[in-house]
Design a binder for these strands. Sequence first.
DNA 1: ATAGACTATTTGTTAACTGCAAATAGATAA
DNA 2: TTATCTATTTGCAGTTAACAAATAGTCTAT
Lengths: 146, 146
Amino acid sequence: MPPCRARYRGDGWAGGRPGRIRRFIEPAVLLLLHQGPAHGYGLAEGLQALGLGDYPVDVSAIYRALYHLEALGMVTSRVEAEGSAGPPRRIYALTEAGDAYLRAWIEDLRATERLLRQFLEAYDAHTRSHNEPDGSPTRFSEGDAR
Amino acid sequence: MPPCRARYRGDGWAGGRPGRIRRFIEPAVLLLLHQGPAHGYGLAEGLQALGLGDYPVDVSAIYRALYHLEALGMVTSRVEAEGSAGPPRRIYALTEAGDAYLRAWIEDLRATERLLRQFLEAYDAHTRSHNEPDGSPTRFSEGDAR
DNA sequence: ATAGACTATTTGTTAACTGCAAATAGATAA
DNA sequence: TTATCTATTTGCAGTTAACAAATAGTCTAT
C-alpha cells in the first residue's frame, strides 16, 4: 500500500457543484454600514440587494461578523430605544477605523477582481486556441510514460 | 453581564489587513491541468504565472487539492518514469469529468466576478455621491438613540 | 563518502469561515 | 392560548488554507 497520501479533510461537495469563492460577508456588511447604521436582521435583507441574492447568507454569519468587527473596533453598537416588532434591536455603525478597514477591503477586492478577470481570460484564450473539434488534448495518451 | 454574544472563532488578522477571498487553488490547478499534464511542484510555479504571484500558495495546499480531485475522479495520475532531479514525480492530467468540473468552476467564477464588479460599483457610487468634505456621515451622532 | 543544496512529495496541527439547526424572546394577531 | 413574525444568540460540524516540518531522491563540491 502506498503511503496513503494525505486526505483532503472531508470530501467536498459530493454533488460535484463547486461552491462560490468565500469571504464576502465581512466586506458586504461593512459596505452596508458605510451607507448608514443598521441592525443585523436588516443587514440580512440588504445583502440581497447587494447582489448576494443568488447566494443566501445565513443570519448567524452576519451576527458573528458584527461581533467580530465590534471586537476589532471597526463598528460600534447601541441598543435601539424601542420601535421594533420584536426584541430590542442592536444598531451598528462604522467607526473611523472601520471606514479605513473597508477601504482596505475594497482595494483587496479590486485586486481580486483583476485576478479573476485575468484568470478567466487565460481560460478563454486557451479554449479559443484549442477549440477542440473532437479529441481531448490534455488527457494521457496510450504510451504516455515520458 | 450580557449573554456574551458568540465570539468569532479566533480573532482575525490582528494586524488589521484583510485577507483575500479564498478558494482559488482548486480552479487554478484545474486550469493549469487544462493546459497539459503536470506534477505538483510544477503547478506551484504555474500558479505564479497565473497571476497568483502576489498571493504565494503553500505547496501542501496544491498537493491536497490534487489528492482531492483525484478522489473525485477529476484528475488521474501516474508516476513519471525517471527524469527528475529528485524523487519520482507524480504527473496529473484532467479527466473528462474534470474538464466538465472546470467548466462549472469557470461559470461560477464568472458569476463571482460580476458580483465583485457590482459590489465595487456600489461602493464607488456611494462614495461619489457623499464625497465627504469633512464630517463622517455614517457615525452615530450625539443624541442618536432613535 | 559526506555534507550541503536542490527537487519533490507527504503529513500534522491549528486557525478561520460558513451553513444548518435550534434555542430564546419580545410583539402582535387570530 | 396559540400561532406568527421579528430579532438575536448559540452549538456544532464540515471545509479550506497557512505554517511547520518530516521524508526522500539527486547532484555537486569538498
